[in-house]
């Protein structure tokens, strides 16, 4: 199949890895990867790697020592299959080029290496669990990728847009920097606008004892209001007593989970559960 020409011609420059000659990629500029590595020192990198791997190293070593390089995970990965079976896209290579090398070198790697790790784990793996499902030993490859993501996140080497969302979660508990006022304003606006189509259409805020609590994706009140509107219509027709939380955490997405920011992950889940407990709902409905 032919790729749209514009996309093909947009990037011509190639990046060849210093550590792994087979790793050849198009150059894609990203401030989060290119500029953040300037602030890294070998001591900082070693300290971070050791802090993350620390007590869990046996779990990683078990994966390293059990893997027989059979290649079944490669055949399971859409990145590998789509890139003409380039071995550097296989899940085992993604582990080998990142955490295995970190352990082999006892954490003594440089900033350039971290940048390459960040590119591999943040832009070439979806943590979709397909490789783990096909591994004959059931090795949790995605756990390892997540661990590398945590190392890169703690070092601040992470694609800019992912970092922006992760920071939005830290500060506002939603991915789009929406304040509580903006959130309330958005849902009231939706209720008002969609009243033209249906009689009695409501988006009930903080309705205690509701059957269903709807938790949208952060982008819905900001750029996809039609999703909340359609949900309201379905709930109205089905006669469901439903609600959305008017305060606290309401965004069901979690970039913090993808970058393995454990503290914020917990705060998000806790926030959602606290809203569920406060409103005494029966079912929590998440868009994602």
């Amino acid at each position: 199949m032919a790729v749209k020409n514009a996309a093909k011609e947009a990037v011509k420059e190639k990046y060849v890895s210093r550590d792994f000659k087979e790793y050849v990629r198009d150059v894609i500029p990203d401030k989060g990867l290119d500029e953040t590595i300037a602030g890294l020192t070998p001591e900082k990198i070693e300290k971070t790697i050791k802090a993350v791997i620390g007590g869990r190293s046996s779990r990683i070593k078990a994966v390293m020592n059990t893997c027989i390089h059979c290649g079944l995970c490669a055949e399971a990965c859409q990145w590998y299959l789509s890139n003409d079976k380039d071995p550097t896209y296989s899940p085992v290579a993604k582990m080998r080029m990142t955490i295995w090398e970190m352990i082999k070198r006892d954490g003594k790697v440089d900033a350039e290496f971290i940048k390459q790790c960040a590119r591999i784990v943040f832009t070439e793996c979806n943590i979709c669990h397909r490789c783990s499902m096909y591994c004959p030993y059931g090795l949790d490859i995605t756990f390892i990728i997540g661990m590398v993501r945590r190392i890169c996140f703690l070092l601040g080497v992470i694609p800019q847009r992912q970092l922006d969302q992760a920071q939005a979660h830290i500060i506002t508990q939603n991915q789009v920097w929406l304040s509580e006022n903006d959130w309330l304003d958005a849902i009231q606006f939706i209720e008002e606008e969609s009243g033209a189509d249906y009689i009695d259409l409501r988006v009930p805020i903080d309705n205690e004892g509701a059957e269903v609590m709807f938790l949208p994706l952060g982008a819905e009140p900001k750029t996809g209001t039609y999703h909340i509107e359609r949900t309201a219509k379905i709930m109205l027709v089905a006669g469901v007593n439903w609600t959305v939380p008017g305060k606290g955490t309401w965004d069901c997405s979690s970039m913090s989970m993808f970058v393995r920011d454990m503290v914020t992950m917990q705060r998000i889940v806790r926030g959602l559960y606290e809203n569920a407990a406060r409103l005494r709902i029966k079912t929590m409905m998440l868009t994602e």
Binding site: N126, C128, P159, R161, Q162, M255, V259
Partner: peptide, 13 residues
Amino acid sequence: YCCNAGGGLAALS
């Protein structure tokens, strides 16, 4: 197969 936007890659427009 994954859609290739999972795992936080959706943010990377």
